[in-house]
């Protein structure tokens, strides 16, 4: 177990270095690093001079990267053109985005897993078709369409939920959270259904049944525990991915989270905000994946013993 965790940690280091270098190379290696940093206008001369100095643009590329990483690791994500500290802004906005992601993940875990189990147990009957077809439909609707339409229906027409969630309270974020989790809820239902069906036919379940155990024990313990692993792993990866996906949801519902900040950066053409936020989101995504992989080793001992 210990060596598995260690190996996983070590494997992660080149990926983090590679991914940050890739982002760095796209920003500073190709094209004009100062492009798109000053809104619709060209950058003023004084800004350019300071910019060159701040990012050490006169050094060779690899030294630039080292200094850039040193800054990132000390939490310096640069300053936006209007003088906002990107790191400070990100810290202030985390709680909102995390709340949004937590709502989405709870929704995914509860509804997705339950629907998948029900469909698998009622395979070939009405409930199964209902879950299969509705999850197929939900997977096909892009999140921004779900968001815009549910804002229209539940926010504007029916008035059940607030139309925008600028304040960022739990209730305000409920509808956006459900929207954010809509794709994954359907995906998890499908995933859960197919693993359940596969495991229900497996040898160890047949053995359990042959021993005379009741359906509660064979389904509830033997099948379910094994079938949960892929769904739980997916949810874990998704927690990282949702932070990035939140850019769409936060733009629609006008939420002041990380995604809203990224959209603000795109919209006002502030490159420091865009690059800083994307880098930060990629790092969060990678760390979430690392955490899941380590947990996976705990949940499924077969993984850590290879």
């Amino acid at each position: 177990m210990g060596s598995y965790v260690l190996r996983r940690l070590l494997q992660m280091i080149p990926v983090i270095i590679g991914a940050t270098f890739l982002i760095f190379a796209m920003v500073f290696g190709i094209g004009d690093p100062a492009a798109g940093r000053c809104g619709e206008r060209a950058c003023p001369e004084a800004f350019l001079v300071q910019f060159r100095q701040e990012y050490n643009l006169d050094e060779p590329l690899i030294v630039q990267y080292g200094l850039y990483m040193a800054k990132l690791l000390t939490g310096d994500f640069g300053e936006s053109f209007s003088g906002l500290s990107v790191a400070e802004e990100l810290i202030n906005r985390w709680p909102t985005t995390i709340r949004l992601a937590v709502i989405a993940v709870c929704f995914e875990a509860l509804v997705g897993i339950a629907a998948g189990i029900l469909a698998a147990l009622r395979k070939g009957r009405f409930l199964d078709y209902l879950v299969t077809l509705s999850s197929l439909l939900v997977i096909s609707i892009p999140v921004f369409v779900v968001g815009s339409l549910s804002q229209l229906v539940f926010g504007i027409r029916l008035g059940i939920f607030p139309v925008t969630a600028t304040e960022g309270g739990w209730f305000d974020l409920l509808l956006p959270g459900l929207v954010l989790g809509s794709f994954s809820v359907a995906y998890i239902a499908r995933l859960m259904r197919s693993t359940m069906i596969e495991n229900l036919r497996s040898d160890y379940v047949r053995t359990a049944r042959a021993k005379g155990l009741g359906p509660g024990r064979t389904v509830g313990v033997h099948t379910l525990r094994n079938s949960m692993i892929p769904a739980i792993t997916y949810i874990g990866y998704d927690l990282g991915a949702l932070m990035g996906g939140a850019v769409v949801t936060e733009r629609i519902f006008n939420i002041n989270g990380i995604g809203g900040f990224l959209f603000y950066g795109i919209n006002t053409k502030d490159g420091t905000i865009v690059v800083g936020t994307v880098t930060c989101l990629v790092l969060v995504y990678l760390l979430a994946n690392l955490l899941v992989d380590v947990l996976y080793g705990v949940l499924d001992p077969r993984i850590s013993h290879d």
Binding site: P14, A19, L22, A241, G244
Partner: peptide
């Protein structure tokens, strides 16, 4: 390394 960057963020 390329897999480490989610498609939407890479596109943005």
């Amino acid at each position: 390394i390329f897999f480490a960057i989610p498609l939407l963020l890479a596109g943005i």
